[in-house]
Design a protein around this nucleic acid. Structure first.
Lengths: 300, 300
DNA sequence: CCGTTCCTTTGACTAGAGTCAAAGAACCAT
DNA sequence: ATGGTTCTTTGACTCTAGTCAAAGGAACGG
């Protein structure tokens, strides 16, 4: 890809320096008041992850990347402060489940209130136009930083991450299609392996957040299927990135045309394909869920 | 001022959370490799502040806000690693001067190279359009966060910060005006005190970075003078903010018209006044440095 | 020249953050 | 049932980061 210009690198680093200097004022965790940072972080994580049955120490440990002993001790002090309750996991009694007590919940709410008012204080020093521009620029920064942190990797069709993506994809379609979606329509693992095709998964911090499949359709022609992005990772431009990856892979295989079909319900997808250079063509198959067919001629 | 909308607060906090999570990858200091964070920070600060005669421990201490003992010990370990040299200050032998050795300089350069390549790595995962949008959004975020962190405060005309600003202002004008600038033209401390007028200084992290004066000109009319912004704080919209503050102060005093004059050399200033709602009027004085005269009718 | 103030060094602490290893209880596959 | 694995707890550490106070040398003001 094109090299990164030194000016952009300099801008990037200026931003980092500026932010790490101000991070004290920005970081929610510094609002942990008299509580040590580690505990404050843990408390927030519990509040965030806690389901109806609380959250297991194991999950917290992997989320926060903490040492088991360290975590055990910290939860002990939180318990001593009356902020959390510990109990044995209902399914697996090796695990402990943590949940917030009423006092713990109140504490978290209070911290959030404080962080909100701090943020409002900063924004309040700008005029309304400035506020709008700042929040807009922050949102753009966040979106693009997230996108830059996501990697798209080729995985085997049998890989659990591939199957997990396809499952989630099927669930999404089942909701969106008025007629529902039948999972037997999904590609088989062999169809996207070896010379037949390829499967790609997008990872954000190790978590699969998107996918896409490429299959051989005819000599020199590939078919793109199952381009999907997790709800949490939408509006980042990730689908476009997956598409780029699939096209690059097609070219690598010497396929100069790619096609795809899509359902009438997926209007944003159609817009995306058009803006990515795809043109609508007549039906090339009689696929149940297909209402629109697209094609793109690849070059270079 | 208008209240801050909850959506904007939420956006702001999402940004903070996202950034503190990624800060490990962004923060230059985390590149200090095997060196403790404190030492790495110190090393960078020395590199940044070091003049031809090095930099005094005293200055480092106040810049970084460190305990004297802590600083002393850290410089000792840096010295033991051969990265800095310590010597007695030439003017005041109570002070110690630190300067980087060749090895220290090499270390800093290497860290910078590493930080650059890390930044380039992140940017490189975006397409050129995304890179441009990201660096642009980062720059906007930085500018507006800086602006929001600046406070504009009324100070007495005799206050050292007021005099320092006027000195810097005079130096700037002396360079920009073809005919030079005579400091006796500056307002006296009494002209901006009490009922006669007011003087405002803009502070960024305790450092004066801008100023503006308001003087009574005639009944119900104020004159704005000496609106100045430090070179480091330009292009943030600070002049506009100072101007707003002066107008608010004028209104508070019941003055419904403010006027100002400006020199032909200051083209950006003229544009700024126009966009702030000032209209050009005929000369209202025969001030030496005045070529253009502006007026604004204040309301509410 | 004398007392006060300023700057640095040193010693003696504390608290937070985190690591490592051992051990016990529970689960799982065979 | 049994051996291996997983999860949590506990004890014993280490390393940073930072505070506080005492002390000594240098500068400064009168």
């Amino acid at each position: 890809m094109e090299p990164v210009s030194p000016e952009q690198v300099a801008d990037f680093r200026r931003f980092n320096r500026c932010l790490t200097r101000r991070i004290g004022a920005l970081d929610d965790h510094y609002l942990g008041q008299d509580r040590p940072l580690g505990e404050a972080r843990l408390l927030f994580e519990i509040a965030e992850r806690e389901g109806p049955d609380g959250v297991s120490l194991r999950e917290l440990r992997s989320r926060l990347g903490l040492d088991a002993g360290y975590l055990s001790r910290m939860t002990k002090t939180l318990r001593a402060q009356g902020l959390v309750r510990l109990s044995v996991h209902t399914q697996d009694s090796r695990l402990r489940t943590v949940r917030l007590t009423r006092a713990g919940r109140a504490e978290v709410t209070e911290q959030n209130r404080r962080a909100d008012s701090l943020a409002a204080g900063v924004l309040g020093r700008l005029d309304p136009g400035g506020r709008a521009r700042l929040t807009e620029a922050m949102a753009t920064t966040r979106r693009l930083l997230r996108l830059a942190a996501i990697t798209v990797e080729r995985v085997d069709g049998h890989h659990p991450d591939a199957r997990a993506c396809l499952d989630a994809y099927a669930d999404d379609l089942d909701v969106r299609f008025p007629e529902g979606f039948d999972r037997t329509d999904l590609v088989g693992a062999e169809e996207v392996s070896g010379a037949a095709g390829a499967f790609f998964v997008a990872y954000e911090e190790g978590r699969p957040v998107g996918c896409g499949a490429l299959l051989r359709q005819a000599a020199g022609t590939g078919e793109i299927r199952h381009v999907w992005v997790h709800a949490d990772a939408r509006r980042l431009g990730l689908a476009r990135r997956v598409l780029d990856t699939l096209e690059t892979e097609a070219l690598r295989r010497g396929w100069t045309v790619v096609r795809l079909d899509t359902h009438a319900a997926l209007t944003e997808a159609r817009a995306m394909y058009r803006s990515a250079g795809y043109t609508e063509i007549p039906a090339y198959d009689d696929h149940v869920y297909a209402d629109h067919w697209f094609e793109k001629r690849l070059s270079r």
